[in-house]
Structures are given as structure tokens and as C-alpha cells.
Design a protein around this nucleic acid. Structure first.
Lengths: 217, 217, 217, 217
DNA sequence: CGGTAAACGAGACGGTACGTCCGGTCTTAGT
DNA sequence: ACTAAGACCGGACGTACCGTCTCGTTTACCG
């Protein structure tokens, strides 16, 4: 967790969940910038001190909210009414990325899912908030890299490693560079809104990237 | 400009420059999140109302500060003491990217310059602040796209268009996708700090991207 | 005034009066101990900072409220509905105490009025609050002695001085001691509630005191 | 005692004494207004609940502290370092006031002792605190009147009763009025600080009061 | 003399108010 | 007319205590 150090044994799990749920919901409703600790405490039915006791900053709360989400502990449909089936939620802890043998198709599916998630109004604002906080707080960034980024990154690496072993990628490919070659452009379009973030864009990126990473022979 | 609409004729140019300079300096010193209108006004020796009269938000002030910088109006060395010669500053209004005929070398040089700028402590914090604000404010994002992004983007497109015409890139390449294929990964590493942002990384990205964008047959 | 030192020229008189009126009313309604700056600000329709800007403490606000009252600036009937005629209000700035020539009758009338005022529910709680604050804050006590106590004290001294000159009191009488000999017992009964505070008690005190202060011959 | 009703048999005497001692000390050090239950509990090495279990209010704790003091149960020198011998402490449970036959001398001695006690820094702040609480809390005032005031008051009455029987006072004198005629002025000067509280003042008060209470013929 | 119920120390909890800071508006002087 | 200055209302900040409520841990009575 991202928490401080009082006597954690006596900690109220109910309050913790209420706070994280409230934080995530509010981040989606009013945006991270306008999110206040007072509002979180009020929505969660909790004293402010209970937040300050366990988290050092607003960003840390939101981070833990994502962490909880990624561990599937959030009540279904948090953030709004219903949840369509088949969605790839932030926290999908599916053990692995799809591997049908068709690398390009698999990656397009995953990157399209990422695009869909970034466009989902339930996640858009909270994710921008978290990203913003990570941008400005190196400690939080390290935590993010370790807890939220790395597990997903490893799944992506695994899929690419398999492809590399199968001769579909150049044997010298740096897997992290490979991943960033595809996710970086998507992330930057989402953040900067310099151009519309479409599935076609995702497809184009995958195609170009795979061509660039293919064996040289 | 990003400004509101009172009688601009009577506007004090000295105050405007003082405000933008103060905003940029403070953004670099204490970070955008802790930057306050009051502090800008105090540092600039200006009443708060003079800021509120001409700019709608803190982000707009910072945006204009970058705009001024990009137009070479900021006093040399703003942000700190010395400035090494030969640096590629944010506002380099060089008419065009280098074109030596060697596309890969040219792009590596430019992307390395981008990496260097993002790592420069004078620009790191203010740029994160501006990016953060763009992330959260669609209006500002549009303004950014038009005023700050587009001119530079067009320079990049121009260089790639020349390469495409010379048969160094696939004729079907979408130039914006091509640019984002290289700058997206760099931007995302810088923002998320998921891995060190090095010149080697920039080189790898250029190499892979160019291979991916090369003519197909 | 009891105020601090910002640019007093720009001060809002409307806010000042609203704050003092609200403070006095609330002191009467809920008692000084439960009186909060937030409640005063809310009732007065004022930002908290406007209170903190001009007064150093809750006690100072209440003090100024009494000061305003004593200068007849409070709207009639503050504290409750109507105000019966003929009452001796805190701030009665009548130039002098009655002087009918009958010292005992005059003093009994005045001391009975004091008893009535202390028993008046409009003044009881606020006066206890002010007294409590004076008890604990020497600075405020000095201010009280100078601004609120002294003018009234001088009126009492004046009446006794006249009586002394007329040979009704011993020529060696210390007028302050004389005053305290009568008002001290009344004040202490009111504060400590060790026995009921009645007009008969006031009369007894006046009689004994005057006998004690009479010429020795 | 001033306490609530759990099974008093199991009550920890050590905790009770530690709490009362801590409360008295802290009242002297930081003043009653800034005294907090948490600080008392911390100083006494006691859980907050142990205070809330046995006392209904902060004032009740302080009251009991004085009660303990008046019963001579406080460790010698509580409140500061040394204690000079021969002092007239709050709790002097001497069976009676001095009776040398010289009423005026006896009363001056006692009233001077009162003045000294009120001026003693060990008692000044705690006494002001207790007084303040009595002022605002009628229940506590009644308890005070019965437990702390009445025993001392009766001693004073006794001395005056003897004097009255000896023909030194008017046979119609109300003894409570007589006492208040002397102690009231002293109390009010102490509380309001309208003038210095000196032994000369005490003497003057006694002289005037006795003259006023003397037989009429 | 071992079991148990109460009081205990500790401290987390939902709250209220503190005194400060800043956002954005409005007023006053000054140039 | 526009500025610098700064008071104003509002409202969030992070802290201190409130009084309540568990937690284990003594402690002292009782069976």
C-alpha cells in the first residue's frame, strides 16, 4: 500500500474502501484538479483525519484507488451505472495477453482495448488525474512503475518475447522499447489531444511498429 | 495571445512581460502545482487584477509564457544562471529541421535535442506544468495544438515529406503517425518515468520507426 | 478600537458592524464558551479572514461588540425582540449618575440597575463571556479597564466626590475603594452564584457601605 | 466527588490522583482555557476514556483537583518547586479563623492571606480557570458552593457570629452580606484587574466594612 | 486458585473548529 | 482609463481535540 505508519492493525477496512471508492468516483465526476480531501471525506462519511492519517497526499489516495481497482476489489460498476460486458477494465488481471499466434491481430486487439479504456468516461478523468500526479511526483511515479505499470508491462513483454522466440521479431529487439513504440504514441495522443485517438490510429501504430521490429533479414 | 478582451491598446507591455517571466521562473522553481496567481503577481510587482483582467486561468498564463519563449522574447537565461551555447531551446524558431540527406541522422539529432530539452532542469518543471494543464483543459489543448505544437509539427512533417518524396519512406505513410511514432515514446517515458530517458533510447526509437515506415517492397 | 494594523482606511464598516452584532447576538444565544469564529463569520455573512485580519482573538471581538454597544451604535433591540423603555443598558452614556441630594437613594437606584442588567438574559451570557476573557487575558483586561470600566467608574467617582464634598462621606475616603465596596459584592454574587442576587442585597450593601464610609466624627 | 457511576470499587486510585495532579499542574502552566483532556491524559499517563469514565467535563476534573487540594491530598509542592512554610494554602482546613478578640486584626490577617493566595502564581491560573468554569456552569457552581465555598464561608460566619455576640457588630447584621462586603471587593479586583490587588486595599476594605457593620447606636 | 468481568492504556474513529492560504471579485488611490 | 494595492467573500487546507468506540492487558473479585 501507499500508506503511512500508525498502528495498521486497528485500521478500519470499511473506511479505507469507502475513501478509495469515493476518491475514484469523485475524480471521474469533477476531475482530479477540483478534487478535494474534504469532498472525499464527506462522500466517504469519514473524518478528514482518517485520510491524513493513512495517506500523505491526494495523489497517493487516488493511486491506491487504482491499485484497489487493479486488484478487483472495487464494487462492480463503480464510477457509474452499468458496466458493459467484455470490457477491458484498468485492473484486468488476466494472467496474460491473448496469444493466437497472429501477433499483429493480438496487439491490435490489446491496443484498441487501451484506446477504448482511455476514451471511457469512467476512466478518462481519473486516469488523467493519476497521470498528472505521477508527472509531478517522482516518488509516486516510482510506486506507479512498480505496482501498476510493471505487472501489465510484463504481460506485454511476455507476449512479445514469445513472438521474438518464434522469429516474428528481430532477435535483438529490446522488449521495453518495443512496447513503448506502440503504447507511447497512443498515450501521447490521449494526453495532448493533438489529434483524435481512434482505433485506426492504434492499428497504424501496430503495423508500423511491427514492421520496424521485424527480423532484418 | 491567450488573453481576454479589455481595451488592449492601453495594455502595459512591461507588466505583461513581467508576469510571463515571473510565471515561467516560478514554474521552474517551485513547480506548476504550487504556483499561485498571488506569487506571480508579487514577483512581477503587479496587482492580481492585472492578471485576472488579461488571462482566464493560471494555465493560460503559463501557456503565454511558453509562447513568448517560443518567439524569442524572453530575456536570455531566464530560468537560471548560465546557458550553454548551441542548445536547442524550446522556442527554436529555426525555419526548418536539418536536412543533410541522411534521414536517420537528422531525426536522431532532432530527437536527441528533444530529449536534452526535456531533461534540462530549466524546462522540465515548466513543461510538466504546461502539459498537465493541457491534459485537463481541452480549450487550452486546442490552443496548444494550434500555436505551439502545430508550427513544430509542420517542420517535422516537412522533413518527412521530403524523405517520402525521395523514396526513403513508404508513399502511403501518414506523416502525423510517423512523427508520433517517434515523439510519442519519448514523451511517455519523460512523463511517466517508467524508464530512463536516454539518447540511446531516442536512437532506438528512430531506427525502429524508420524501418517500420520504409517502403514496403 | 481593538484592532490590528492593515490599511484601516479601506476597511469595510458594514462588515465590522455585522461582525460585532453577530458576535454579541451569538454570545447571548449560545454563550461565549461555545461561540466560534466560524459561526460569527457565517451569521455576519463575512469571510473568516475578515475577522482574523482585524481582531487578534475571539475575546477582542466581543470586547469591541460591547464597546460599540456602549457607544450606542448597536441597532436598538439587538439581542432579542423589543427593548422596554427606561432600562439601564450597558452602554448608557448618560453623562452622570443621578444626584438628588439623597446619596443612599441615588446609589441604591444605580446598584439596583446594575443588578437588573446582570440578571437581564440579553446581557447575562455575553457579560459572563467578556468577564471570562478579561480574567484570562491581561491585555484585554487593560483595554477593558481603560475603555469600558473607566468611563463608568469616573461617573461613580464623581457622584461620590460630590457627596464627600457635601460632608456625607469621610473626607479621607478613597473613592475607588468606596465604589468597589459596593460593586464588588454584587459582581461576586453574580459570578459565583453563591447566593441569589437580589435588589435587597444591593440595598443592604449600599447601607452598610455608606455607614462604613461616613464621616468618623 | 464529582464523578459518574461505574463500579467505583474497582477504580484505580493511582490514576485518579495522577489525573487530578496533572490537571492542576497543567492549569497552572498553560491556563485553563488551553487545557485539554488529551494533555491531561498524556501527562497523567492515562487513557482518555479513564477521564471520560469518571468525570463529565473538564471543569469537573479541575473542581475535583481543588477538592483534593483542599483535603490536603495533593503531594506537597505540586504546582512548582518549593513551598515556603507557614503559607495559607487553598485547602487550609484549619478548623477555624483566628480569634484573638481583636476582630479587625483577625479579619485583616485572613483577607491578606486571601490576597496572597490569589497572587500566588501557583494558584492564580488554576483558580481563574475554576472560577471561569463556575461562572458558565450553574451545576458546577452549586457543587462549588456546597463543597468548596460553604465550609470556608461557615468559618468566616462563625468568627463574625462571635463578634456579633460580643457586641462588636450590629445585632441585625446578615453574616453572609458581611462576608461578601469584604471578600467581594477583593475577588472583583483580582478578576477584573481594574486596580492593583494589595494588602493595603484589603485593610481598607476591612476597616470600612467593619465600620459599616458596627452597632448603630 | 483459576475464571471472568471490569477498569485500564492505547489509539483509531467521525466530527467540529481552528487559523492560514489562495481564488476570483470589487473598491480605492494614483498616474 | 488603466494600474498597483489590497480588502473582501468563499472555501479548502492540514492540525488539534472533542467524545465515542474498540482493542488487547492488567487487576481484583468470586466461585
Amino acid at each position: 500500500m501507499t500508506t503511512k505508519t500508525p498502528n495498521a492493525a486497528r485500521r478500519s477496512e470499511a473506511s479505507r474502501r469507502a475513501i478509495l471508492t469515493a476518491a475514484f468516483e469523485l475524480a471521474g465526476e469533477i476531475g482530479y484538479a477540483k478534487l478535494t480531501i474534504e469532498a472525499i471525506a464527506a462522500r466517504a462519511g469519514v473524518g478528514k483525519q482518517t485520510i491524513y492519517r493513512w495517506w500523505p497526499s491526494k495523489g497517493a489516495v487516488l493511486f491506491d484507488a487504482f491499485l484497489m481497482l487493479s486488484e478487483g476489489q472495487l464494487p462492480a460498476g463503480v464510477g457509474d451505472g452499468g458496466e458493459a460486458e467484455g470490457e477491458a477494465a484498468v485492473g484486468d488481471t488476466a494472467a496474460a495477453l491473448p496469444d493466437t499466434g497472429d501477433l499483429e491481430a493480438d496487439l491490435k486487439a490489446v491496443l484498441r482495448a487501451t484506446v477504448a479504456e482511455l476514451a471511457d468516461p469512467r476512466y478518462d478523468l481519473p486516469l488523467r488525474g493519476l497521470t498528472s500526479e505521477i508527472m509531478h511526483d517522482a516518488d509516486l511515479a516510482a510506486l506507479y512503475a512498480e505496482r501498476l505499470h510493471e505487472p501489465v508491462q510484463e504481460m506485454k513483454r511476455t507476449r512479445l518475447r514469445a513472438a521474438r522466440a518464434a522469429g516474428q521479431l528481430d532477435p535483438d529487439v529490446d522488449l521495453d522499447v518495443a512496447v513503448e513504440l506502440m503504447w507511447g504514441p497512443v498515450l501521447s495522443r490521449w494526453l495532448m489531444r493533438t489529434a483524435p485517438l481512434t482505433e485506426e490510429f492504434a492499428d497504424s501504430v501496430v503495423e508500423a511498429a511491427l514492421r520496424g521490429l521485424a527480423p532484418k533479414a
